[in-house]
């Protein structure tokens, strides 16, 4: 069956100002912070999504999610976490000054990537970076939130927190499989109909695979309930996965036009 799902090509758009209210954007130039209100761009949204994924992954590798859970259940003394962090810092050869610098938000670019790889190595994790699905899902989530919530009185956006909705993860899985990879053009000798048939079957299969892989990962984006539901859908009603993606896609189409991303 064919589903009308918006491919993830819109994720690739960078130079597009979103037609929302102006957002206050602080800027630091020569040590002076100035606040200016201007439009957000797709590039900023995409970068924010990626940073969020990296941050999340870094927390996971440091054991923050488990710590949070235990801290909030009062089952783990905080001192134990401190011991672990100290050990990580020692193993990563992070001195006091280094930590200070990191806290000050300097030396950011180098830290984000290699810190994650080093943590991954220390934790024995074979997938050190967040997967594409995570970025696509977070980006979609941020855009949907931006499109459906009026800005705060101060002209800013506030996400209530929690986890990424299931539909965003499912849509992202389908959308990324619908993007034409560079250079992989179909054989011209095969008739167009067959190609469409074969192609649609192929992307749907891949999308389900992506979802299954993600369920088997650390599932950072989703809450427990969504994780259970996705696992059931994959097993019992894969068609529902595509229906969910299609519903999300319909909302996105309208929203992307309203925000000026697509025409």
């Amino acid at each position: 069956m064919n589903y009308d799902i918006l491919p993830g090509d819109w994720w690739l758009i960078r130079q597009c100002e979103l037609k929302t209210q102006s957002v206050l954007r602080p800027r630091r130039r020569r040590g002076v912070t100035t606040v200016k209100s201007r439009q957000l761009t797709m590039a900023e949204l995409s970068e924010t999504a990626a940073k969020l994924c990296f941050r999340l992954h870094s927390m996971y590798l440091q054991g923050v999610p488990a710590l949070l859970k235990e801290l909030q259940q009062d089952s783990l003394p905080a001192a134990q976490y401190g011991t672990r962090i100290r050990e990580i810092n020692r193993r990563l050869d992070l001195g006091g000054k280094r930590i200070e610098k990191l806290k000050q938000g300097r030396d950011v670019q180098r830290f984000t990537v290699d810190q994650i790889y080093k943590l991954a190595v220390l934790q024995g994790v074979s997938e050190p970076a967040p997967c594409v699905l995570e970025w696509g899902a977070v980006l979609t989530w941020l855009l949907l939130h931006l499109g459906s919530h009026p800005l705060d009185a101060g002209g800013t956006v506030g996400i209530p927190g929690g986890t990424v909705p299931l539909e965003c993860v499912i849509y992202a899985a389908c959308a990324m499989c619908l993007i034409d990879p560079i250079g992989a053009k179909q054989d011209a000798s095969v008739s167009a109909d067959t190609v469409v048939g074969l192609e649609s079957a192929a992307w749907q299969r891949r999308a389900l695979e992506v979802c299954e892989q993600y369920v088997n990962r650390s599932r950072l984006l989703m809450g427990q309930a969504d994780f259970v539901r996705l696992s059931e859908l994959l097993e019992d009603d894969p068609a529902e996965v595509f229906r969910i993606a299609q519903q999300c896609s319909e909302r996105l189409r309208l929203l992307l036009v309203r925000l000026g991303v697509r025409r």
Partner: peptide, 11 residues
């Protein structure tokens, strides 16, 4: 570390 200052979406 990811440059919060430069990318603030919430007040």
């Amino acid at each position: 570390w990811s440059g919060v200052d430069a990318s603030v979406l919430s007040e």
